[in-house]
Simulated scan of single mutants.
Amino acid sequence: MRLQNKVIIVTGSTTGIGKAIAKRCVEEGAKVVLHGLEEEWGKAVLHETRGDKAVLHIEDISREGAAERLVQLAVKTFGKLDAVVNNAALVASSSIHTTDPSFLRKILEVNTIAPFSLIKAALPYLSEQKGCVLNIGSVNAYSGEPNLLAYSVSKGALMTMTRNLGDTLFRENHVRVNQINPGWVLTETEKQRKKDHGLAEDWYKDLPSVYAPAGRILWPAEIAAAAVYWLADESGPISGQVVDIEQHPFIGRNPPKDASTIKTSK
């Protein structure tokens, strides 16, 4: 039980990567604050985590006061707070031609400012426990795909924040801040997104090797397994680190011109 008795907030945990992380945390002995927008999905995850090990909060993470409400729910329900997983994110296609300032602000509010607000609200309690923050970013943080401009900008900003706070908060508060950058992950929403784009029901079973050398893309459970290390005490004093989790080197890997344009990463 690598997370025995720890109390962890996992945002965006009613589906996908967040759901996998929350379930793995409970399996490792933690108590979890589940969060998301989909109440029905959230209740299903709550049932899967046996109820007494988790509590559910449904709210748009970018709403004023949402961060404080999540933190207070954790402390009121479980008596403390050891860690925060900033996983909730808004993934939306956009390019320089389709991105206006209003749209960019919306993406930044959810993907960058909301994680900052949650870290700030949680900091007094994380300091008491000498706890940690794990931000879930994206390999798109380095430059991103042509049709993911706003999203990529938001994840790049998140990565800079992780490195900045990973230094300052560890020195000043003994709170570690690290980040995982997943590559392309087969979540429920990713399956649906590609179907909405006109692909076949089983599109993920036949992918170009340039995107999936292993013959498949990543599973949420594989990201969750990696998350446990950063949330557990075994990661020791390591802070301010960003780890890419993908099956090939992302930077500098240029697909051939005839490769499918199917890809959209986490």
Results as ranks from 00 to 15, higher is better:
V75H: 01
A54F: 04
I180W: 04
K120Q: 15
Q192K: 14
L165F: 07
K76Q: 10
W184V: 08
V243W: 08
E59L: 04
S260F: 02
K194D: 05
T261Q: 05
S265L: 08
A74M: 00
K31A: 05
E64V: 08
V133S: 03
F116A: 11
M161E: 02
I107L: 15
L169V: 04
P115W: 00
G16H: 03
K195R: 15
I251T: 14
Q129T: 15
R69N: 08
G236M: 12
V71E: 03
K23Y: 01
L158F: 04
E38Q: 13
A225D: 15
A20C: 10
L34I: 05
V45S: 00
L70M: 09
K80W: 05
A122Y: 03
S62W: 05
G137E: 06
S154F: 06
P213A: 09
A66L: 00
K257D: 04
K205N: 15
K257M: 05
A224N: 13
D100S: 11
I113Q: 06
V7E: 02
E109I: 09
I96E: 06
A150C: 11
R50L: 10
T14L: 07
F103M: 12
W219L: 14
I119K: 01
R171F: 09
Y151M: 12
K80N: 07
L108R: 08
W203R: 14
G183W: 05
Y204M: 14
R193L: 09
G18A: 06
E39Q: 13
N178A: 08
A20R: 03
M1L: 10
A30M: 07
R163S: 07
S13L: 06
D167T: 13
A89L: 09
T162M: 02
P146K: 09
A141E: 07
P208V: 09
V85N: 03
I245F: 10
H174M: 13
D258F: 03
N87H: 02
S138F: 07
D100L: 06
K120N: 14
A121I: 02
V243L: 14
T11R: 00
Q192D: 08
K266G: 04
N164G: 11
L165N: 00
K155R: 13
T160N: 12
D60N: 10
R2I: 07
G166P: 01
I113M: 12
A224V: 05
E222H: 13
K266T: 11
K266L: 11
T49F: 01
K194F: 07
A88Y: 00
D100E: 09
E190N: 09
K191P: 04
A141S: 15
A114K: 01
S239V: 08
A44R: 04
V91K: 02
A212T: 09
L90S: 09
A224L: 13
D233N: 12
V91A: 07
E59M: 08
A121D: 04
V33W: 01
T14S: 06
F250S: 08
L126C: 03
F170M: 10
E40H: 07
L81P: 05
G12Q: 03
Q129P: 06
L149T: 00
L81S: 02
A92Q: 15
I238V: 14
V10Q: 00
E190C: 04
E188P: 05
H197C: 13
E28K: 08
D202S: 14
I113L: 15
L37K: 06
E222A: 13
E59A: 11
D167H: 10
